[in-house]
Write a protein that binds this DNA or RNA. Structure first.
Lengths: 225, 225
DNA sequence: GCAAAAGTGTTGCGTGTACACCCATGC
DNA sequence: GCATGGGTGTACACGCAACACTTTTGC
């Protein structure tokens, strides 16, 4: 390992990343959790995360921990850092600061198993999670708020869905994230007015009247920050 | 110094805070910079900042560095963490991750001098700063964007002004942050409709017609974290 | 009385919201 | 033919942007 030349006043802190990874399952917004295999908080559920390596970008560390601890195969469709948690006593092992990330996993990310250091991995209702280790309940809460505000501007909801999807499915994603019902007509009007969706022409068979399929237009690029 | 029991895989990184502190001077949005006294980037201007101490909250570290390096006396009226910069090569001394903070200093924070480790401190136009050390130009840019989005919702602009102020003064703050002119009538209508301002009755003498003085209503709370 | 800055209203447009019925399909 | 979910339009409220003249003071 390379030796560093940090100034003497640099406190020795551990730098970690934690990831709140969301996906839609059964019309509900779910969050990916792992069951810790080691102390502290052994057997307690927690957000996947771990220590950043020396020459690793923060978002790379987040991706790596997500893969290592949950054995997911699909790449997240969205990944952003959203807050850094650094209260001195947040981790009993010492001073550990965590850069928290928000991830969106695409539809179909169902199978998860425990990975290195974890007993298990699984999906849980994002708005009503089980008891969580460390300050992860706070982290999750803030992740949800960020997800909600992101939804207003961007086309982030599309990242939860497969290539083609129906408008009722898209509305379900919005309703799951915002935790409230939306008006069908207003929702359609608003979404179609944005010009991000193009009609895919085909139809999908279900129980009632078949829904029209859409896909995201290639020009879905507007990240007006 | 207390010995920590960090897990072996915890990379040894330095944890720093940097502060983009803004104030209004001469109808312009200004940012507080310090001239570095040590390598690397000696004599180059930079955002005030430094290493977090072991048992210190992140925002406390930000406040401490601000005071130590710039000798300001007034407390910031707003302080929030807004992004964490962690590119592996952002600091030539080694892996140093910086939790960047946004601060608003009240009107009257004029005198600043260099402090420990800095040659000088001074105010610079926030939208057109001098060359900056490390990745501080990026940090400042993101701080400005955050300031602009904060302005929409909150009463953050009030933090730039003294106890009592006039509507033209408040409009100047908004215009300086957004870097664009606003319509006087629309601005007044919008701000007064929010109910955050109460008429202070007095008047202030100037060149033309005197302006009415306002103060913030009691329900407008401070936003320092 | 004139220069300089403060103050004041109306209109149009776009956006969001409330709200109820018909349509296409499987069984 | 009926149960199931998909699809459609209008009317009102609200917020935002555009726009020009009068008022109060100092000199």
């Amino acid at each position: 390992m390379k030796t560093l030349t940090l100034p003497p006043q640099a406190a020795q802190v551990g730098l970690a990343v934690d990831v709140a990874a969301f996906a839609m399952h059964e019309s509900e917004l779910q969050v990916l959790l792992v069951q810790r295999g080691t102390l502290p908080h052994a057997q307690v559920w927690a957000l996947p995360g771990g220590f950043v390596q020396l020459h690793e970008e923060l978002h790379e560390a987040a991706l790596r921990e997500l893969r290592e601890e949950t054995s997911i195969s699909l790449e997240p469709r969205h990944l952003e850092q959203f807050y850094t948690f650094g209260a001195p006593e947040r981790d009993p092992r010492g001073r550990i600061v965590s850069v928290a990330h928000l991830a969106v996993l695409p539809h179909g990310t169902v199978q998860v198993t425990g990975g290195s250091g974890t007993l298990a991995a699984g999906w849980f209702p994002a708005h009503t999670p089980p008891p969580l280790a460390f300050d992860h309940a706070q982290i999750l809460e803030r992740a949800l708020r960020r997800l909600q505000t992101r939804l207003e501007y961007a086309q982030l909801a599309l990242e939860f869905l497969p290539e083609t999807f129906t408008l009722p499915e898209l509305q379900e994603v919005h309703e799951a994230i915002l935790a409230k019902k939306l008006d069908k007509r207003n929702f359609r009007k608003r979404l179609l007015a944005q010009g991000l969706l193009i009609l895919s022409g085909e139809r999908r068979n279900g129980v009632g009247r078949p829904a029209q399929l859409y896909r995201r237009s290639k020009t879905a690029r507007r990240t007006t920050v």
